[in-house]
Design a protein around this nucleic acid. Structure first.
Lengths: 110, 110
DNA sequence: GTTTTTTGACGTATATTTGCGTCAAAACAA
DNA sequence: TTGTTTTGACGCAAATATACGTCAAAAAAC
């Protein structure tokens, strides 16, 4: 009886919430930040950059990949990770849209 | 052995991730949206607006309250819910900051 | 060929979140 | 006083997320 009920909400809300969820863990933010700061594709063990084991970091990378935010290109034994500019733009747009609709300034709350 | 390791990350990342997490459920987005659209304080059963039971909705309201995004003023038997403009502004600022730092446009990814 | 390096897939244990039922307190009406 | 309405607190069960160990596949080094 504790079935997920998120599917009962409007599509837009679900999409927005899903994006927020992808970003709701410091490890994933860190990975995105790192790739962004590197300003290029990265080869090698991302897990050395964060306080987590390799497997766990891979798990987070996988989530980011599934969300489309990063891409991985196999390069021999290694994999090159890159941000996906289109999806980054998309996530920015979706979140901006939600935030700009949030208006809390025009009434007295007492 | 599966202790939370989020505390091992930098403060800023933790703060950002925590805000994303608050917004990572459609019910909470809906509540915020509803209060925002009403453009005033709301009395009465919010749960009629969403496809969840009263207790569950209260749970989400509680989380939003603990995050500071909404305030509740007791008004006799009822409670008036309002957005908290300062916190809304804060969350917007924190998220904007993260997003604007995310730069994926300047390199070739092949 | 064999070995090494790197990564993903899989399984597992614990932690946290989600959803709700039940109960109790508070304010009001009768 | 005795109900009635509204809400928060508490606790439970199921679902999901976190963190990681182990193993296997693929490419390169030997």
């Amino acid at each position: 009886m504790v079935q997920s009920k998120t599917e009962l909400f409007e599509e837009e809300l679900k999409t927005q919430a899903a994006w927020f969820k992808v970003l709701a863990h410091p490890a994933r933010l860190k990975i995105l930040q790192y790739l962004s700061e590197a300003n290029s594709c990265i080869t090698g063990d991302l897990s050395e950059e964060l306080p987590l084991g390799r497997t766990t970091v891979n798990q987070h990378i996988k989530e980011l990949k599934e969300a489309g935010l990063i891409q991985g290109h196999i390069e021999g034994v290694r994999t090159k990770y890159c941000l996906n500019p289109e999806k980054i733009a998309e996530v920015k747009a979706v979140i901006e849209e939600f935030l700009s609709a949030l208006n809390a300034g025009d009434y007295e709350c007492k």
